[in-house]
Design a protein around this nucleic acid. Structure first.
Lengths: 248, 248
DNA sequence: CTAATAGTGTCTATTAGACATTATTGT
DNA sequence: ACAATAATGTCTAATAGACACTATTAG
């Protein structure tokens, strides 16, 4: 059978069972929580990676995260938020669970699982305070092939990006990778980077208007050409869905 | 910082590090893999539940699954497949990871996580062979409010069903809850049960034709009224997506 | 003025929903 | 014949893509 519960006895109370239960009697599965933190910066999608300063996989680039801290973490999401805050000193405006990886081979320390979260946030300087010697950097996702990635974190990154690609087709969730004020063209470029094709400007603007999820800030941004209106997103934008997907 | 790696030393080899590493030196997180197994039977969506025959939560209804078996399971998905096979003696045609629940309170044995998978399959008799005394039954999902559900498995079930509700809007994935041969009306009823509203027959048939994912079996099923054509689904149906969602 | 970018007008093809109509069975 | 269910015909409204056109800035 599946459960390895021992000492099965119909007449035993739950308390008596728990008194006799020691989790160290069983083979241990290691549990980490790691986060794929993405942002939009310099016309590119970038992911925050940490160069590992300890074994195993020393020197390779990995996702921020680590073992659940039983003293501090009251949930998996709390663990993800803690490790993001440690690297960026910022609360990400969008965070979701992506997948859980697990096998006996992925970590040399033994059978392990990584609960992978993903967050989107405005670009900020990484590691604004020096708390560790670890090298933390925003890496362009298009150039990850040239980096040595620790464990199976490359798979976690790919799964997260694939998820956002789907979301880019039916929602404005990618907006959370932008600063508070952004232009519709900024947002369209993020969507285009995710789905890998151009989107008609008119179509994208129509969707934005139909959603009623964008507030005209009153400001504009002028670089080359006609100035672009800067918008803010309503908080409910994360829940908005198109009825019709962007076509590929 | 986040990692609780100890013995940090730049000059140590990875092997020396691993030799000194004992997972039992750290607080243990328990890991179970549990599966929300759904099917369509008697015009209802049903979930396979197991009445727990051991502590904790003895007597309550829980998801089939259990601790990762390090001897048998080479992955999380393998663990899910093993526990499904133990209860149904069948390989489910559709299986995906849904979410991972984790907290210090969800299991009295300590900080624990449950990796929740969900599967769809044709209805079959539960526990066709008597391997345990556990009571395994298909329970209508509309009547779960009246059952005592173990741990936070109710949340896992709700998350899985919500996921399938979304999939019912943009795919034919719910087809995997039906037998090999089914009518388009059968499939429409599954979709309607998931999304909670009626779907126009004509619209649904149009989507089915446009997808080219259905093979006319040549047979029909006659109950009352005009006989309905029985179809088979092409294997690729799991990957098919509507460009336009079913509207609510 | 020109280049560059933002934003609008508008045509057309597609298609979902609505619902009426026809088809095919059992009794 | 009638009830019941399956399957089709067809009208209309909505809207995405395409692309031409206008607007507003810098230099």
């Amino acid at each position: 059978m599946c459960r390895i519960d021992t000492n099965y006895d119909d007449t035993m109370t739950e308390q008596a069972f728990l008194d006799g239960y020691n989790p160290h009697d069983f083979p241990v599965v290691l549990v980490t929580v790691d986060t794929v933190l993405l942002t939009w910066h310099e016309e590119q999608l970038k992911v925050l990676l940490v160069q590992r300063a300890s074994h195993p996989e020393l020197g390779k680039w990995g996702l921020p995260g680590g073992f659940v801290n039983q003293a501090q973490d009251h949930s998996l999401e709390a663990s993800a938020r803690r490790s993001v805050a440690a690297k960026t000193n910022v609360e990400p405006p969008y965070l979701e669970q992506v997948c859980t990886l697990g096998s006996p081979e992925r970590d040399p320390r033994g059978w392990s699982t990584a609960v992978v979260y993903s967050a989107l946030m405005p670009h900020c300087a990484s590691t604004p305070f020096v708390e560790s010697v670890a090298n933390t950097q925003w890496q362009p996702v298009n150039q990850l092939a040239q980096l040595e990635i620790a464990f199976d974190h490359r798979q976690g990154i790919e799964t997260a990006i694939e998820r956002y690609k789907q979301k880019a087709l039916y929602s404005f969730v990618p907006v959370f990778a932008l600063p508070e004020l952004f232009t519709i063209t900024d947002l369209r470029k993020v969507h285009e980077a995710l789905i890998g094709t151009a989107i008609q400007r008119k179509s994208f603007i129509r969707r934005a208007e139909a959603s009623q999820m964008f507030i005209d800030s009153g400001d504009v941004r002028s670089e080359r050409g006609r100035p672009a209106v800067l918008y803010k997103a309503k908080p409910a934008i994360g829940g908005y869905r198109f009825v019709r997907n962007i076509e590929l």
